[in-house]
């Protein structure tokens, strides 16, 4: 879990974003190195989606700079692959999983796609990379949540991006499927030399694979290795009141202390249906 010494692919400096007059991100700075696995951790509403959208160029920011490979981010960027938050798909939609993956290659281009050999090969390779060969011909809308997640990842990596952004990919998955996705992403990060920036509200599933963490709270961010950030002093400063960080059997508990031990609450792993 040590930060690699590689040159940063993404640098965010003093980024501030307001949504309808409310400051959602306040002077956020962090960087992501090539091939690094970074977890973007924060509660619902902490600004994770806004931050990812800003990096993608889908959200205007008030101030600050976003650099990709040392250059200011351009409008349309093929260096970034994106997996949005859970999307609701019509089960009857006439589109196979492989069609959606193929659109990751050229979905923004005009004209009808030609079924060239290289395009087919790229689709096959992407499906294989996420272990989705067996359901490539099924309709996307009829896949399970975990399967859809894999297809969306295949869609995002087919254009060979340098940075992969994922918005809460684990939110709607059970523990087991979540672990599979995390393992898959870690493998993709090493094999394809792509940096991963993944947002989540749970830190523990990411601990085995995460190189760095960006912790968002109150619109501000702390970043560094897990050991540097997930500490009582750092998180207490971020939240503006005292929190305790406890490590139990290799898992991390962030506990909000409030007026003594009586109100101490521990959050626990949630296993959504």
């Amino acid at each position: 879990m040590s930060a690699s010494e590689s040159a940063p692919i993404l640098e965010v400096e003093n980024l501030s974003v307001s949504l309808s007059g409310r400051r959602v991100l306040d002077q956020v700075s962090f960087s992501v190195g090539t091939g690094e696995f970074t977890g973007l951790i924060g509660t619902n509403g902490a600004g994770k989606t806004t931050l990812l959208r800003a990096v993608l160029g889908m959200q205007v920011h008030d101030s600050g700079v976003i650099h990709l490979l040392g250059r200011p981010r351009s409008k349309r960027n093929h260096l970034i692959g994106y997996v949005p938050q859970k999307i609701n798909l019509d089960p009857d939609m006439p589109m196979r999983a492989r069609d959606l993956v193929g659109l990751g290659l050229d979905g923004h281009r005009l004209g009808v796609p030609l079924r060239t050999r290289s395009r087919n090969a790229a689709v096959e390779a992407s499906l294989a990379a996420v272990g989705a060969e067996s359901f490539g011909d099924a309709r996307v809308g009829q896949l399970s949540g975990g399967e859809q997640q894999r297809i969306l990842i295949a869609h995002a990596i087919i254009s060979r991006p340098r940075l992969l952004l994922l918005d809460e990919p684990l939110a709607n998955l059970d523990l087991h499927s979540g672990q599979e996705i995390v393992g898959l992403l870690a493998a993709i990060a090493t094999e394809q030399k792509v940096a991963v920036l993944l947002s989540a509200h749970e830190i523990n599933p990411l601990l085995p694979v995460m190189d760095r963490v960006v912790y968002l709270a109150n619109g501000r961010a702390a970043s560094g290795t897990t050991e540097e950030v997930i500490k009582t002093e750092v998180l207490s400063a971020l939240y503006g009141h005292h929190v305790d960080v406890i490590s139990v059997h290799g898992r991390i508990l962030v506990v909000a202390g409030h007026e003594g031990l009586d109100h101490l609450t521990m959050s626990h792993d949630e296993v959504p249906g």
Binding site: I41, A46, H201, G240, V243, V254, H258, M266, S267, D269
Partner: peptide, 13 residues
């Protein structure tokens, strides 16, 4: 997040 309540959800564990 900023609400001073006993439950501080982001956390994990």
């Amino acid at each position: 997040v900023s609400a001073p309540g006993p439950a501080l959800n982001p956390s994990p564990g």
